[in-house]
């Protein structure tokens, strides 16, 4: 039977699949984490930076958002090595996804911060709060509610974009599965399996996001 044959192929290749899955998780986790940290900085500069800083970061963000992730990955792998910075395929891939993630998170953060009425910052100033106190006690908790749903969206995009690292030879989950397909010819079955695993990963991220959303929601 096809199903038994597929399950057997998956079981036989379990170490290869788990290695690929582990790579996918590492790539996604690192890129989302670093991209979010960098993205918050980008968002802060876009909102509160001076003219010159805003202009520079605007170009950075627009350029990265306007470039296909595919091109970014190739650029990080090849162009950096021409310049003399020899990153491994894994590092170059994570670097590319981090940059991509940071530009998206940056815009999410900017949008959320700008949506908070000016009066709140003024009120905070008038009771003598410093900028960092204003940011962490007044603005961030409110912005977080705006940020979370779209951030979850970006995070799942990054997980899916991690499959593009196969082009520079990183054996993530999809490439690991393709390697099994080339041996067993079970293409539809195994692609379905890969899709299902990606769905599980992203579903977990979405659930985690929902959980945090509930935690930061205004009690009704």
């Amino acid at each position: 039977m096809e199903i038994l044959q597929t399950l057997e192929a998956i079981w036989l290749a379990r170490t290869a699949i788990l290695d690929g899955l582990w790579n996918t998780i590492q790539i996604s986790f690192l890129s989302i984490l670093l991209g979010t940290i960098l993205g918050i900085i980008v968002g802060l500069i876009l909102t509160y930076g001076n003219r010159a800083a805003r202009f520079a970061i605007r170009i950075y963000s627009d350029f990265l958002r306007g470039t296909p992730v595919f091109v970014l990955i190739l650029a990080c792998f090849y162009i950096l090595s021409v310049v003399g910075l020899d990153l491994t395929a894994f590092q170059a891939g994570v670097f590319a996804l981090t940059l991509f993630c940071s530009s998206h998170v940056g815009e999410i953060v900017r949008g959320a911060l700008q949506a908070i009425p000016k009066g709140q910052t003024e009120a905070a100033k008038s009771i003598g709060l410093t900028f960092s106190k204003t940011f962490f006690s007044v603005l961030l908790p409110q912005a977080l509610r705006q940020i979370l749903p779209t951030w979850v969206n970006t995070a799942t995009e990054i997980v899916k974009a991690s499959t593009l690292l196969s082009i520079i030879g990183v054996v993530e989950l999809l490439l690991a599965v393709q390697q099994i397909i080339s041996r067993t010819y079970l293409s539809l079955e195994l692609y379905f399996f890969a899709g299902f695993v990606f769905f599980i990963i992203n579903f977990a991220i979405e659930k985690a996001g929902r959980y945090v959303e509930r935690k930061v929601a205004i009690p009704t």
Partner: peptide, 12 residues
Amino acid sequence: GSTNAPWHFKDE
């Protein structure tokens, strides 16, 4: 590469 039998692929 690693995904095209019988040229370059992963065995069992």
